[in-house]
Nucleic acid binder design. Sequence first.
DNA 1: CGTGTAAGGAATTCTGACACG
DNA 2: CGTGTAAGGAATTCTGACACG
Lengths: 107, 107
Amino acid sequence: MTNDSFYKKRKVIPIGPVSELTGLTERQIRYYEERKLIFPERSERGNRKYSFNDVEQLIDIANKREEGVQTFEIRKDMLKEKNKQDKELKEEMLRGQFNAQFGVRKK
Amino acid sequence: MTNDSFYKKRKVIPIGPVSELTGLTERQIRYYEERKLIFPERSERGNRKYSFNDVEQLIDIANKREEGVQTFEIRKDMLKEKNKQDKELKEEMLRGQFNAQFGVRKK
DNA sequence: CGTGTAAGGAATTCTGACACG
DNA sequence: CGTGTAAGGAATTCTGACACG
C-alpha cells in the first residue's frame, strides 16, 4: 500500500470511463459518494475526477454489494481498515525517529 | 520501460485534464496528434482519451518544442527510439528461446 | 435502501476554417 | 510551421426529484 504508483493516485478520470472500467452505472457511483464510500475530486466547474485507486475501490464495493453487504457496512469496514493503516504508519514513523537517534548509522 | 505500471498505459484521461497536466493548450495537443507524435484512443463518440504515458510523452514534446525542435524532428527521434526498443525486445525474446533450449534449468 | 429515469442546464469536446507569418 | 480563435453542434456531466419497494 505504501509503494502505490504515483499514477494510481492522480484523480483525472471522469465518471464515464470509470463507469466502463467498473461496470457500475453513473448513478451507482454517485450514490456511493453520497454514502461516503468514495471521494472524487472536482474540476473547477464541478465535474468528478477519479483515480485508478478509486476505480479499484469501486470494484471492491461492487463485489461486496453483490454479496449483499449494505453501504453502511462497507463504510464501517473501510474506516476500520483506514484506522489500521494509520496506526501502522504511526509506528513506522516512531521507528524512524528511534533509529535516527539510537539506531546504527546506515551508510 | 518494460516494467511500466499497468495504469500508466490505460487511456482514460480526457483532453482537458491532459492540458492542465502538461501545460499545453488543447489546440497544441490536437496538433501534435495531427503530426503523429501522440496517439490517443477515442471514446465511442470520438472523444480523445490519453494515458499517463501520453502525458509524459507530451511533456517531453513540450520541452523539445521549447528548444525549437520542429515536430518533424521530434517524430524522427521517436521512430528511432521505437526501433531501438523493438530491436531490444527481439533480442530479449531470442535469448529466452535460447535459454529454454540450451540454457541451464532454473529451479 | 439502492437504483432507474426523465428534465433542463451548464461545461466539454469535436471538426473545419480563417488568421498570422 | 505552429498556434490562436470564433462557430456550431454533439456528447458529457451535474443536480434535484419522483418512483419502486
